[in-house]
Nucleic acid binder design. Structure first.
Lengths: 242, 242
DNA sequence: CGTTGTGTTGACAAGAGTCAATGGCAGTGG
DNA sequence: CCACTGCCATTGACTCTTGTCAACACAACG
């Protein structure tokens, strides 16, 4: 709800309806598949705690991570309208997710067009993030990409209240990081060192710290507008050190 | 309608409603911007004739083309629910598009939940195509990527009835091609030559011909399922030469 | 007949991937 | 308490894909 509230207007009535949704909580270990590629899904997944990512493996063995999902995200909302998954949904860290049956969601959407629009909007923002990643992977060099990724993750963490000052948790190893950026683990490591030397980021024991937002955002060619957040608070925060 | 019919069930009633939509036809010259990045949009664009693409330019001057749209596509359906465009919509070739006011679309969607679901579904397939491109750009080498792109475009052309045998029109220059693939024009040229030598494709005077579908699809690691087409005819065609 | 857009080529540089080895560190079991 | 193991970050050396720059050919067009 916090996430939905952040991207659109959520009425008390909406909150009531959402609270009624049947949800089955599941604990997952790191690396566990939530929904495998190719399978149809009968329920949607809501991330409650931990991280989840969407990924696909090429027959060459190389893997691309399309997106990383924080608590509050619904990474497979699209399964509501597509017959089968074109990628896998995997637990990045040990985590807790809630499974909500498609039928239940369909029912409340039939009753509330405005809620339909809100969820539709959520999937559109999802697609916008894909475009941003694609732009980076296709046209920017690895250091730029990496800076951009950290910027996006900071903003999204901030929106759902997971940041502490200029830090946010990112319990992910360098192999995963490399697969998000479309590069190799070795190169990701070297790039990470470069960003550290330039004093653009700190990344240790699962936490990222951003010493100077403005510098990182510039280096990463980052513009948060594609995330379409409704929080003015965000703008305030991002400019607070200027 | 042909496109919507291809991805989901379209009733006669739906067709009636869609025919009632007010649409303003516009002729565009090559390279003309239909909707610029950053601007809000008040109407959606339906491609009637020619090609249209979505693109974004990095401050470094490098450009990524996110998607290429054939007649029947609605490339900016997402503008219905997002306040501003995170990319530009540009005419790839001289073309004809129809502009449909958001208000009119919103009105018919309010009346028909099933049509809402169908359009939502369309934007989800759009997102699935982004994932497929991202996977290629991030993890596959340029020749593979290019083969994959030609496969996708063949299938999508086929769905809307634009193919002639194993050929389809692609009036696009090598610079555009390079920007779709996230590579340089010079490299795109060399890759094109490589594919030609391997007898995987012909590409001349704006037409692509595929000598052996199976060979190209294998080389391009192509699996059409992400396009979620409903036509069995497609499967038949793709295997007709085996 | 110059101009422009486009495709093609060669030479070179730089970014990025691969392979292999090392070291730290936490957990595990004896 | 200590060996053992697995995971992960780091490094060096080497290769190769890819980008850049520059030049040239060719066709369409005014």
């Amino acid at each position: 709800m916090r996430r939905l509230g952040a991207i659109g207007h959520l009425t008390d009535q909406h909150r009531e309806v959402l609270k009624q949704l049947p949800i089955r909580m599941v604990q997952l270990t790191k690396g566990q598949e939530i929904v495998p590629e190719g399978k149809p899904a009968a329920s949607c997944c809501l991330v409650v705690d931990g991280l989840v990512h969407r990924t696909k493996v090429l027959s060459s063995g190389r893997r691309q991570i399309f997106s990383l999902h924080l608590p509050g995200d619904m990474p497979d909302l699209h399964s509501l309208h597509l017959p089968s998954m074109d990628h896998s949904l995997v637990a990045t860290t040990p985590c807790e997710v809630g499974l909500i049956p498609h039928d239940a969601i369909r029912e409340i959407l039939r009753a509330s067009p405005s809620l339909t629009d809100l969820l539709w909007r959520d999937t559109l923002i999802d697609a916008a993030a894909f475009r941003a990643w694609m732009l980076m992977i296709g046209q920017a060099e690895v250091p730029t990409r990496m800076a951009h990724l950290f910027c996006e993750l900071f903003v999204r963490s901030f929106i759902v209240g997971l940041t502490e000052g200029w830090s946010f948790p990112l319990p992910v190893n360098q192999v995963d990081l490399a697969d998000m950026l479309g590069t190799s683990a070795v190169h990701a490591n070297r790039t990470l060192q470069e960003l550290r030397v330039r004093n653009l980021i700190k990344f240790e024991s699962g936490w990222v710290t951003i010493p100077e937002w403005q510098a990182l955002a510039e280096f990463g060619l980052f513009d948060s507008s594609y995330l379409h957040p409704m929080t003015d608070r965000l703008e305030l925060t991002l400019h607070s050190t200027l």
